[in-house]
Design a protein around this nucleic acid. Structure first.
Lengths: 291, 291
DNA sequence: ACAATTCTGTAACAAAAAATACAACAGTTA
DNA sequence: TAACTGTTGTATTTTTTGTTACAGAATTGT
């Protein structure tokens, strides 16, 4: 068969108009089930009108919605008919006796970057490297650690980096004065927290750019995000894996450092001096939790 | 959710008339997919007429064909969303034009586990799975995020998990009463922070077991640690990479969950209930088929 | 700031699919 | 064999759904 439609949509995401992209994300978020519903329901789920759905499938090259659904059914049928063949595919990767969990994590990182739209990464890095903008980072129950990690690094290479943490009630205080010069970076995977979604939406409404790092295109934040970086998180374990998310974070950090090497160098040096001057023997200043 | 429709059809196969049975078999042969097509196509595939299909779904208890399809979609969606099912979407892509940074990170993860002494991992997991012990997690400037992440997960599957955070001055308060029944997990990479070292050393002196997750440079903590898990952190960037550390953390988390599945399951369920009881706000609208 | 172009939703329309009515048929019983 | 009961398909109606036309909104370029 031809290559999976989901991959094509993912790779061609840039060709779509903004509302068509909403349709694409809605479909990817619940693939392929969302596409097997009626046009009207699909439209409602995506937050767009019916004609937009039709234009979306037309741009994908289908003469009509029925043909599109036919393709989805065909893919689904062939996928469901070879469940065991597929799952054994997972263990083919390790040449040696590698833990399947580890093998999958390695694969997730590779696959994540193989499918990241190239322009998407560059766009985000350009945004984050712009020091005239203020960066706000926020994450969910587990992914907050990633937001913190990224903030700790970005803070070193550029000014105006804020990690949104602590009491949820206080989050919205931080939205005061947020506007088109601000960037919100959201780490959000399944079990999306409504507070985070509201935070991102409010910020977007005030004109801020939203960058979303998420699992396979599912977060509702995707609708209002300027950039979406989807990562593979599935592993043979009750948990989702954040390893690929961490890899994305590090690529962003490296990219921002490289985007302006002199500035990064200078700031690192200055911080080094400050640290030594303040306290040569003990690392006595505010520590990891210094918010 | 109610029990799967496919089961019900199986059990009630005798209730159907002979042509309805044809419909049932056509559906079972291509399980949910055949039912997501139009009535006419379904009928043709089953070799019966359209009204027979309608009578078949009516006998199953659905008011109309649309409701029947809705049920199929709902089941399908929940089935496809389990992590393991989603992993079948994965497929290998040749590592052609990969960013060197990403390539190195992928390699780091693989190499890290290739060189981890097997018994070491198992020993740590056994230690962390023992709920009679109290786990204290601590990290450095950047790696504190990993300590936090690990703590957030462990806390769910077992009791007595503490993330040592906040003001450094308060750290040592937590050492009161720490003894041979405690485990200290230290995340520490180059630029080892003296405070963390002292913390670990003190705990060890009081009889606690120390687990160290570190880079290959081997933190000074290594001398007093019961277990050392070294990770590859070098990447072509001014920073060290924590991706392999994250991978280690996740393997530990998965291991502890798997070491005592019933306990993990029970605690997760209890937390779920608690969460629902606490937070009745259901944001259910955007994705009709999800949840 | 204006014009041209592209995008997007509302609303009307056409196509299709689902639902129904009904007659023919098969099997069973008297 | 005749009458009854339950089953099935054809033909028709009704409803839903997909599609298209068009006008307003938004965006882009000059």
């Amino acid at each position: 068969m031809e290559r999976p439609l989901i991959e094509e949509i993912h790779d061609r995401i840039d060709e779509f108009t903004s509302t068509e992209r909403k349709a694409a994300y809605a479909l990817l978020a619940n693939y392929p089930v969302q596409g097997l519903d009626t046009v009207a329901n699909f439209a409602k789920a995506a937050g767009v009108s019916s004609p937009t759905i039709l234009r979306f499938v037309a741009r994908l090259g289908f003469p009509g919605f029925a043909d599109f659904q036919g393709r989805l059914r065909k893919e689904l049928a062939s996928q469901l008919n070879t469940p065991l063949a597929r799952s054994s595919e997972l263990q083919q990767v390790p040449p040696d006796n590698m833990d399947p969990l580890v093998a999958q994590m390695v694969d997730n990182v590779r696959e994540t970057f193989a499918h990241l739209p190239k322009g998407e990464l560059e766009g985000v890095i350009r945004l984050l490297a712009d020091e005239k903008r203020t960066i706000h980072l926020i994450g969910g129950r587990f992914t907050d650690a990633l937001a913190r990690y990224t903030a700790a690094h970005l803070r070193i290479v550029r000014p105006n980096v804020i990690h949104v943490a602590g009491q949820q009630g206080n989050w919205f205080d931080q939205l005061l004065g947020v506007g088109s010069k601000d960037v919100i970076v959201v780490f959000d995977i399944r079990r999306y927290q409504t507070e985070i979604i509201r935070f991102a939406e409010t910020a977007a409404a005030q004109g801020a750019s939203v960058v979303l790092v998420t699992d396979s295109w599912m977060s509702p934040v995707g609708r209002i995000a300027s950039f979406v970086l989807p990562a593979r998180v599935a592993v043979p374990s009750p948990w989702d894996s954040s390893t690929a998310l961490m890899a994305i974070a590090e690529v962003l950090i490296a990219g921002v450092s490289a985007a302006n090497p002199e500035r990064s160098q200078k700031r690192m040096q200055a911080l080094e001096d400050l640290r030594n001057g303040h306290d040569p023997s003990k690392g006595g200043e505010t520590m990891p939790d210094g918010e």
